[in-house]
């Protein structure tokens, strides 16, 4: 029984230039004790879908979902007040920019203690003891001295540790880490990821790790969900995904990894950008950037079954080759031509 079960989640923003669908029918589930990674370029709706589930989107957002279930409770129908009893306690979230995510006017001790008071009603003494324990848990040296520290006195890595301590304060069942290491130095990135994975193993919570770095996915995740322009384009276990990506977008992301691009002068990157509200393709959203695109891809796009990673593609790749693609024969023609 998954701890989080989301079916067909969509988020539409009311913008000055009309409605914009930032999340388009996302389905995802996480078990406790599991790490799910969500990968995708900037603008693919990773943050928005998580904020929707936390209830943190502005009023311009319209959220629809067939199901949004957390630990047996329906997040979609509950009131804001009921949801506030869950978020920060059973589901907590850490963000991309640790330095700006802590309030500059309050001490570290205050900001962690506040969560403890809100959800567990701890008194001052208990809060202090638990805060020290938490800071120690996330590897902050001399935790007692840190209580009266202000955020601007902390480095990025330390700030993210404090954010993690705050998120873990009430022993959550699910932690959402939204690109927790993107803003940090490379050496610190590894430390923070190790910390997150270690804590996740120790506490048996579910962890959603959002990233746009396939390297991070390879090191940490168990199951991977690839998101593009608000849609889920593929889902596989990490090993299988790296061995045999089924969606051309996943394949392109993997090809952009430095270790796979060895021997070339420059890293290959995917030309073009994620479509915005104005240039949304009619069927397959990856079509303008896809090397395998055909006329069919401009008319319709097909969701493949589990065996093909639920790839949202008319010509899913198997071992790097698009299945049933018209160019297959064409390609052989060309090879023949070259030979002669």
């Amino acid at each position: 029984m998954p701890i989080l079960d989301i079916q067909n989640l969509s988020v539409t923003f009311e913008t000055s230039s009309g409605p914009f669908k930032a999340v388009d029918g996302i389905t995802l589930s996480v078990d406790s004790g599991e790490i799910l990674s969500i990968v995708g370029e900037s603008g693919s709706g990773k943050s928005v879908s998580m904020l929707a589930l936390m209830g943190l989107l502005p009023w311009t957002a319209t959220i629809t979902a067939d199901r949004m279930q957390f630990a047996g409770q329906n997040l979609a129908t509950m009131s804001a007040r009921q949801r506030r009893k869950i978020i920060g306690k059973d589901i907590s979230m850490i963000f991309q920019e640790p330095m700006s995510s802590l309030n500059p006017c309050f001490t570290v001790g205050f900001q962690i203690g506040e969560t403890l008071r809100q959800h567990l009603g701890m008194d001052r003494k208990a809060r202090r003891a638990r805060t020290i324990e938490l800071l120690d848990l996330v590897g902050i040296p001399a935790p007692e001295d840190r209580l009266s520290t202000f955020p601007h006195q902390l480095s990025g890595g330390m700030s993210q540790r404090v954010m993690i301590a705050m998120a873990l304060a009430c022993k959550p069942k699910l932690l959402i880490a939204d690109e927790p290491t993107t803003a940090l130095d490379v050496t610190i990135q590894a430390q923070i990821l190790d910390l997150l994975v270690r804590l996740q193993k120790e506490t048996d919570m579910g962890l959603i790790l959002i990233t746009h770095d396939m390297g991070v996915v390879a090191e940490t995740a168990e199951r991977v969900q690839v998101q593009y322009a608000g849609q889920k384009v593929e889902e596989q276990h990490v090993k299988a995904l790296f061995r045999d990506p089924h969606h051309p977008y996943t394949a392109a992301l993997l090809a952009a990894l430095p270790e796979r691009a060895r021997g070339r002068d420059r890293l290959p990157s995917i030309p073009g950008v994620v479509p915005g509200p104005s240039d949304r393709p009619p069927a397959c959203l990856f079509e303008p950037r896809c090397t395998f695109a055909t006329d069919l891809c401009r008319q319709t796009v097909k969701r493949q079954d589990e065996a093909l990673g639920q790839a949202l593609c008319n010509y899913p790749l198997v071992a790097g080759r698009p299945q049933n693609h018209p160019s297959q024969s064409h390609a052989t023609d060309e090879t023949r031509k070259e030979l002669t």
């Binding site: 943190l56 920060g88 995510s101 802590l102 309030n103 969560t115 809100q118 705050m166």
Partner: peptide, 14 residues
């Protein structure tokens, strides 16, 4: 619009 306000809300504060 600051990140720390979002953090405060994500803590379940009123």
């Amino acid at each position: 619009g600051e990140d720390y306000v979002r953090t405060a809300r994500s803590k379940g504060l009123s």
